[in-house]
């Protein structure tokens, strides 16, 4: 489904060069849930943003369904329609109601009729458990509700892959659970997911594979049991000692 080969992203600015993503190669199979963890500044979010072309990488290849993002003729808009993204800061459209947030891209990008888009939107709001807020503006919702709307908004495009960029980091602790529940449900339904998170419990419970990144490099890859009980690398051991 996703095949990243030797992806490198270099940030330059004020005379400093940072290799934010350094020669990363990752394969994600269809229906797989991959959790990327690592200390802040390790390049995991940048790598995730490379996968749907929000960040352009300097070298390497990323194939989504065998289409190369690095190829000049690739239409990134078409790729992005197939790859849903959920942000740390929700990024709901504040001037549109919850339902309009869900229907806009369906109509603009998928060219669905308004009636079909609304039907789909209501269905998804029901799925994430906030159908009663359909006509509210996002500012009236709690953080957890906003993030669930954001997930529904991405799902409305019928994506093949869902990317999550620290979806619970901006939430109050008591709201983390409701968002994770929605994500767990998605994973059970067989959605291909790549999740950047600090929620170790989620990683342990849901992930098929855990990728540990540090300083732009993939340090260790393994199943959750292997990674959380018996990591091979010294850097991973140190990290786990600090977060667990």
């Amino acid at each position: 489904m996703i095949s990243a080969q030797n992806v490198t992203k270099i940030f330059t600015g004020r005379g400093i060069t940072v290799r934010a993503v350094d020669n990363v190669s990752v394969e994600v199979a269809s229906g797989e849930v991959v959790v990327i963890i690592g200390p802040s500044g390790s390049g995991k979010s940048t790598f995730l943003r490379c996968i749907n072309g929000l960040e352009l990488f300097n070298s390497g290849h990323i194939f989504i369904d065998k289409v190369d993002l690095a190829h000049k003729k690739t239409n990134l808009n078409h790729i992005r329609a197939e790859v849903g993204m959920v942000f740390q800061q929700f990024n709901l459209f504040p001037h549109k109601t919850v339902l309009e947030n869900l229907t806009l891209a369906q109509m603009r990008v998928r060219k669905r009729s308004k009636a079909v888009a609304i039907e789909k939107g209501r269905q998804l709001l029901k799925k994430v458990g906030i159908s009663e807020k359909a006509d509210e503006y996002p500012s009236r919702l709690s953080g957890g509700q906003q993030q669930r709307v954001a997930i529904a908004r991405a799902l409305a495009m019928d994506p093949k892959i869902m990317l999550f960029d620290e979806p619970t980091s901006a939430l109050d602790p008591e709201m983390v659970g409701e968002v994770l529940d929605v994500m767990k449900q998605l994973a059970r339904e067989g959605m291909t997911m790549v999740v950047v998170t600090h929620e170790m419990g989620f990683a342990r419970e849901v992930a098929d594979r855990v990728i540990f990144m540090d300083e732009g490099k993939v340090v260790e890859v393994g199943t959750p049991e292997h990674f959380f009980t018996n990591p091979r690398e010294e850097r991973a051991k140190l990290f786990l000692k600090q977060v667990l």
């Binding site: 992005r80 329609a81 197939e82 942000f87 800061q89 990024n91 891209a105 603009r108 495009m157």
Partner: peptide
């Protein structure tokens, strides 16, 4: 906020849209 543009683009919308 830049996130607004990013969210719209991540849904497959074009820059003008």
């Amino acid at each position: 906020p830049r996130g607004q543009m990013e969210a719209a683009r991540s849904l497959g919308m074009t820059m003008p849209q």
